[in-house]
Design a protein around this nucleic acid. Structure first.
Lengths: 222, 222
DNA sequence: GTCAGGCATATTGTCAACAATTTCATCGAC
DNA sequence: GTCGATGAAATTGTTGACAATATGCCTGAC
């Protein structure tokens, strides 16, 4: 973390990025107030930069902006997380379908490698490595699908889900549970079977819905 | 249109709203430069308000913001419009499914009324009325589905599609073509058949993809 | 002891001037 | 005649001061 006096456009993304990180790390709890001057001192930027960064975060749905009352970290209810995940299921399904149709041989091999690595990560009981591979899998599939629009929507939603994803990944046995689903997606894409790929991706994300449903509210707001 | 000297928060949404309107009306063509001072004079607000409004529009994907070079009306290619529509199909499908599951008797009756009005509009050859009913149908379905997240995404995408929707609605015979599809959605929701509702909604939006595919680029950029 | 009113403070919102950068046209060299 | 440099104008970006508003505390009446 560079604590240089960043200014202007650099400052803007520095603040936005910093808050995102803090959010992912759990250093900022939902409902927490975000005071402009405070942030400007912490990040060493002007209040204008903070202001613009907060606008950006609000547009991404990570922060709630109440007129004359300032910004708060937005609380995402379990219900909302479920809805987000339902939407994700559809969009991931679309991406998987298109990936199965369009993926080059190189990518298909790459996906197989990711699958093998995932197997290993689960066998080794390394949820951290699994999480990284998980991200890479979804990322590669989205990329090769050519569905830029769907991908942008998914990115956005993933940003809102950081808190929940963190909690889910920590659950013992969760990787073992999702591994076969991920492998099914990979197999279908590699085999070039669009219907199977879409179904597998949907089934996978739907199982996340299940997992979410018996998640307690992640953090007491306030 | 009030050309009062709006200031502050009011000014901000006044500009954003005004630009959206101009965009929908075709008064602003994609690629057109949006100069801050010019807009501030037209709308009678300070440049700060214009600036923030442009940020909002950029976040919605309606405007492209290039550092040090200003804002331009974003060009949405046919390819992108198709992708947007593909995503819409999925999300509309989800909403229709949930609507079929959860709609109250009152809403079901309301939807039937909309269907009847649509029939009439087509019979009368009134594409304008049909367009309004179309919007209301999708709106009501989204509302009753309880899918706030999907609805928010759809709103966003509809905003980006204004230009294309306008052109499509003008095509002679288009309402007659989409009428049975809309009626199918309504019937399925009214009948409480989720699978049929989802299928009908998807089929409808997929047919929009077809229509888009043989649309010439809507406006010469620049 | 509780509640209403008013004051002090913290915080956000607005603005206009200033700085930095890009753009475009003009001019000169080859 | 074309290409590149130069400078002026237009435009965006930044800053700090000032204004408006909300919040919480303190006081005093009942």
């Amino acid at each position: 973390m560079t604590s240089n006096q960043a200014t202007g456009r650099a400052g803007r993304s520095a603040v936005a990025g910093g808050i995102k990180e803090a959010l992912a790390a759990g250093d900022m709890v939902p409902g927490q107030r975000l005071v402009e001057q405070e942030l400007s001192e912490v990040f060493g930027v002007t209040r204008s930069s903070v202001r613009e960064a907060l606008q950006d975060l609000a547009a991404e749905g990570l922060v709630e902006l109440i007129p004359r009352r300032g910004a708060r970290v937005r609380v995402i209810s379990v219900e909302e997380a479920v809805q987000i995940t339902e939407c994700r299921a559809l969009l991931e399904g679309l991406c998987a379908r298109r990936a199965a149709e369009y993926a080059s041989d190189t990518v298909r091999r790459e996906l197989q490698d990711i699958g093998a690595d995932m197997r290993r990560a689960v066998a080794d009981g390394d949820p951290d490595a699994y999480s990284v591979l998980n991200r890479r899998l979804h990322e590669r599939v989205g990329e090769v699908s050519g569905q830029k629009v769907a991908q942008a929507l998914l990115d956005r939603m993933n940003g809102q889900m950081v808190r929940y994803q963190f909690r889910l990944a920590l659950r013992p046995g969760r990787p073992a549970q999702s591994l076969p689903q991920h492998l099914a997606i990979i197999d279908a894409v590699v085999a070039g079977d669009p219907d199977a790929a879409e179904a597998a991706a949907r089934a996978h994300v739907d199982s996340v819905v299940e997992a979410l449903r018996d998640t307690p509210a992640p953090v007491r707001p306030g």
